[in-house]
Design a binder for these strands. Structure first.
Lengths: 203, 203
DNA sequence: GTCTATAAAGCGATAGAC
DNA sequence: GTCTATCGCTTTATAGAC
């Protein structure tokens, strides 16, 4: 078979979801894929190469699910829906989503100690914040970019925090989604009504 | 010396901050503590035992810095200040705070794959949410406990997300603190003005 | 209690047959 | 392309002297 490569990558994603990036053993991976250890080395130089390919594979696979109708209409209502969809997508109890979220969590955790991972993460993270900020910008009236970015940073950081708790098993996925939805609503409200809120407080 | 034990635990905290829980090697730890490897095994059964003790040690040490004036006045203003102090305490660029935050981050990341860690984390996490919820309850008017807990869950999850980004080095500590402060303000406002906000929107 | 020396195991990586 | 067998380093853990 010529897609033995893909079989191995899919197995790697499953093993990472079970043991983490740092817990992945070449032997366990080979067994999971149903091939010999040597074959893995034949297809992917070494362990680091396998990890690189697997994270790339996971990233590509994720895009298939996250990027939809990018050139769609830019009206507030659909942007708002897109924003919510985009942020809730990573909180789903499906094997593939779980694998992706787990891998990203491991990547983040590993980046604290591995400067090499830091780079890839910084790039991906910035793009992610930018994307959410842009969606926020289309939901309400024109606002300073810094405000949009700050709101996006809060939302994405919250998502990462909730995601970790979900994956640990101390926060049910439905509850996590609910908390995320409320946070989105609060940020949108805040951006939508920059000052009226204050008027209410004092009035 | 009888507090060789403590010396080792302090060294372990430093090594964990540098390499992570999963990156801790008994040899490096021994060198960091200035003792032999065998002595570490003498005082702490095995690697798992050392890790257990170290995480406990870190937790205890954290309490020394977080728990202050617990039986203080319960007026809204001081509760509000205490809430902010409590949540910003983990975002400080001091060696000890960094060690604690790093260790907690590793504990969370590890708990995704290790059921044994899950237990300790679930307990500590629940207490932490409860504490923040109680503080929130004293800031504003009486509210359903579920609302307070939800707000506390959002704030603590956000803190964890921001903390990870800070430790990775992609979010300056000052910026993280600023984002956290804004989020606290938003949650307090939300709880303080449960309905007026809606009136404003529709009015 | 503390050390040096060493056993035992785990794991990444390679050799070589098919 | 794929396998079996094995090497060699790293790391945990123990034995035994002081």
């Amino acid at each position: 078979m010529r897609d033995r490569r893909r079989t191995i990558l899919e197995a790697a994603a499953r093993v990472i979801a079970r043991r983490g990036v740092r817990g992945l053993r070449m032997e366990e991976l080979a067994a999971e894929a149903g091939v010999s250890k040597a074959l893995v080395y034949y297809h992917f130089e070494d362990r680091a190469g396998l990890l690189r390919s697997t994270l790339g594979f996971i990233g590509t696979r994720a895009e298939r699910f996250t990027r939809r109708d990018p050139p769609g209409p830019r009206d507030p209502a659909s942007s708002r829906r897109e924003l919510e969809r985009r942020l809730l997508l990573e909180l789903q109890d499906l094997p593939e989503v779980r694998e992706n979220s787990t891998a990203w969590g491991e990547l983040r955790a590993g980046a604290v100690f591995d400067p090499e991972l830091r780079e890839e993460l910084a790039r991906a993270g910035a793009g992610w914040v930018r994307e959410v900020a842009d969606l926020l910008g289309r939901v309400g009236p024109p606002l300073p970019d810094a405000d949009l970015v700050a709101a996006a940073e809060r939302l994405t950081a919250l998502l990462e925090g909730l995601s970790t708790r979900w994956l640990i098993g101390i926060l049910p996925v439905g509850h996590a989604r609910e908390l995320m939805r409320e946070a989105i609503a609060a940020e949108v409200r805040r951006l939508d009504l920059p000052d009226r809120r204050t008027v209410c407080v004092t009035g």
